[in-house]
Amino acid sequence: MKRAGPGPTDHPTDHPTPGHSRGRAALSRPSAALSRRRAALSRRRAGVPRRGRRRAARAGQYLALLGYLVFLAFPLLWLVSTAFKPPTELATLHPTWLPERPTFDNFRRAFDEQPLLRAAGNSLLTAGSAAAISVLIATPMAYVMARHRSALSRAATGWVVVSQAFPFVLVIIPLFLILKEFRLIDEPAGLVLVYVVWSLPFALWMLAGYVRAVPRELEEAAAVDGAGRLRTLVSVTAPLLAPGIVATALFTFITAWNEFFFALVLLKTPEKQTMPVVLTHFIGTEGVADLGPLAAAALLATLPSLVLFALIQRRITGGLLAGAVKH
């Protein structure tokens, strides 16, 4: 089956070449013999005009792709460009696409204006703990969900789906009151707890998929060889699961690193706030902001997520594709 996911394995581009193109071979790539027959067939059926139409269609596709590229890329380019512009260029009424005299000054000033390092430290601590804990408690449950068909695992699967529709409006107030009861408001520990619970559904889902990918036969073979249940899990299943566990942990980390709403509600002391909350402090009460440092800080805050996401992107979309292909 043709891989269409955003994986890196691009097919060699087959462009309309005379003799091969009339059979709409570019739309699908049949075997050589088939396509020859098909090309012959359609050559008989359609005259020359069809080739012109195909060209026009191709051009239209490229035009559409260009539109998407512009729409997707221009805000990103503008963010990067603004981050490297000196104050004089930011103050002009006619901003240019690229900074005329690029400077790193905005980055230095960003660190002066807001405690970015401390915020990054807080984010690292919360997101790191949330990722570690959630994977630690999700892996056993995911194992049960994947290997046992009981009412429990059915309920868990149902909950995973339902949790996607969770109304945050309704959950945040009780959560706030409960955490207050445990004196966990304004504590990183409270936020970590919330992140763990909030990321569990997806972690369970991913991990259960990875467990299913580990052949049951391997576990059975180990059991036949006399390995106990625990021994089988530790020395057969766990090593095979490791890449999946790492991917899940990284995804949880990114989610928690980016999260804003819970952090805003649950952390009040500025010294404890995480990166996204601190970023909003760059924008004053009147909505006025020092654009250069704001852009620089926003860029820096995005880098960790982008790098980690690039690492696991193929695994996430790959897992998704595997799930979608398998019937």
């Binding site: 963010l79 990114i254 980016n258 760059f282 852009a295 926003a298 805050a301 995005t302 997520s305 982008l306």
Partner: peptide, 11 residues
Amino acid sequence: WAMPEVVVGIM
């Protein structure tokens, strides 16, 4: 997908 929503807003 990978960007924090706050950064998307700022951008």
